[in-house]
Structures are given as C-alpha cells and as structure tokens.
Amino acid sequence: MSFLEVKNVSKGYGPPWKRSEILEDINLSIEEGEFVSIIGYSGAGKTTLMSLLAGLIKPDKGTVTLGGKAMSGPGPDRGLVFQNYSLLPWLTVYENVALAVDQVFPKWSTAERKAHTEKFIKMVNLTPATKKLPRELSGGMRQRVSVARTLAINPRVLLLDEPLGALDALTRATLQDEISRLWQEDRKTVVLITNDPDEAILLADRVIPLTAGPKATLGPSIPVTIERPRDRKCVSEDYDFKQIRNEVIDYLLKARDRHKASLSRNLVLPDIEPEDISRGRRLSGGRRGPVRKSEIKRENVEVEV
C-alpha cells in the first residue's frame, strides 16, 4: 500500500433533489517523498479534492488513508497552504508561525520552540520581517509566512492548494523556485493543486490531470522525468517539457469536449449588412430593409451544443 492512498472516492453536495456530484471515482496513490501535481480547470473540484486529503470533509464513498491508517479528520500530520494565505491579521509573522509550533510541540521548552520558529522564518527568507503584521507584507511575502508555518509543524504530507494563484507572474516564479529548493532539502511528500501547466510540470515528479466537473475524475498520471535541479529557463525550451505540457493540455481539453453533448443544431446567419447609425436611423433612397450582401442570403452552420 502506498503512503497516501485515495480509493474510489466520490463526493457531492446538496440534497438529493438538487444534488451536484463534484468528484467521482477518484483513485490516487502517492509514495513517500514524492511530489505530485494535480492540474485542472477552475471549478473542476480541485479544492474539494484537497479538503478530502486534508480531512476537512469526509468522502461520500471510498477511503483516504495515510501511512496505512484511515483518515478521520484534520490533523498536524498534513500541512495545508491555501491560496488566500489564511494568516491571523492581528499577529506578527513570528506569532503566526509560533502559534502553530506551540500547538504541535507543546512538550518542547520555550527556547526550543523559539529556535524552531526562527529557523523556519529564516528558511523562507523572512527574518527581516519577523515583527511585521500580515497587512504590511506583499502577497508573495504573506504566502511565504504561510509556507513557513506549514513546514514548521513538520507534517508528513504537504498539501498546496493553488498556493501561488493570487500572485503576479514574477513573484510566482520566485516562489516556485523557492518551493522547489525547499522540497529538495527535505523531500517531503507533496500534493500541489494548480491550474498552471508550467508550474505543475516544473515542480513535480508526476502530473495528474483532473477532468472538468461535474463528476470530475483523475486522468492518467504523467511522469516528469526532467532532471533536478530544474532551471526554469532551460526547462521551458526542453523537448520533454513541451511534450508533457501538450499531453496534459490535450487531455484536459479533450476531457472537457466529452462533456458536451454531440447534438447538432442548425443555425442561420442572415447575410445582411449593419446600418450606419452615426446619423440616426435615417435611410437614403427610400430603402426599407437591410442591404443583403450577396445572392446567397443564408448560411447554415452546424454547431455542437
């Protein structure tokens, strides 16, 4: 059995008469020390899947196990990083991280906890901002606090839920490099959820597409064999990288197309010219109807509905 295992999991919301099935038949096995990216459209059910892994919600069907034990609720063995940082606004950077450390390591001495907290703030390069409040920080810095807080509790699995989604491209790139560096240092098991194919591939050992909801499910897992450490610039010109990206995007676009019913509808586009309304609705030459472009007045087009 794998380290983190999801078996035949389904999840939906709402009463039976107005039910929406979000996830169906999700199967996922992740080995210890593996970095897996799950990539999907907005609204596909990515966050629902993450909440299931975190134990914040329970599946309707199926099981989620971590290290062979069934998950019964949230716990410090899984560390979550959210898109919106979720920092306590009245606490400083240090206090936000210390809060988690104090909770998870109550038996340590005060000095030990302090050293531990400071170590992780340093790890994300925020030592100069230790005493700042979240509102005094940029989005990228806030997300670093969130990453430090999560890593400090030393979770067995790191769950990243679109952690960089709200950041601009440049900050995003910097933090991607940082996540990559941190991961190489201690090789934790990581599940990253994102809608950015480049980010998914750059960071992960495996990329798994999540098809569009409702009833979203996971597609085939695509291994990323590009050697580490990966350099952003070289990687984007790498042939394998491009192949993987095309494969992922193709799969997702096709999966979405399958959702469309293949009923075709006959459409008519009248071949008429728009009127020049810059001088009001006056027509010259006693014309009443629109000007028709050609002899063929209509065009029939079939579209997929």
Binding site: L267, L269, P270, I272, P274, E275, L283, P290
Partner: peptide
C-alpha cells in the same frame, strides 16, 4: 445596427 432587419433575423444573428 440591424434596425432595418426583421425581428426574426435579428434573433437569428444573436443565436448564431
């Protein structure tokens, strides 16, 4: 811009 066209034709354009 298609005020001279019939209602039906205008609806067809939107539908299309």
């Amino acid at each position: 811009v298609f005020f001279t066209a019939s209602k039906r034709e205008r609806a067809q354009i939107a539908e299309y």
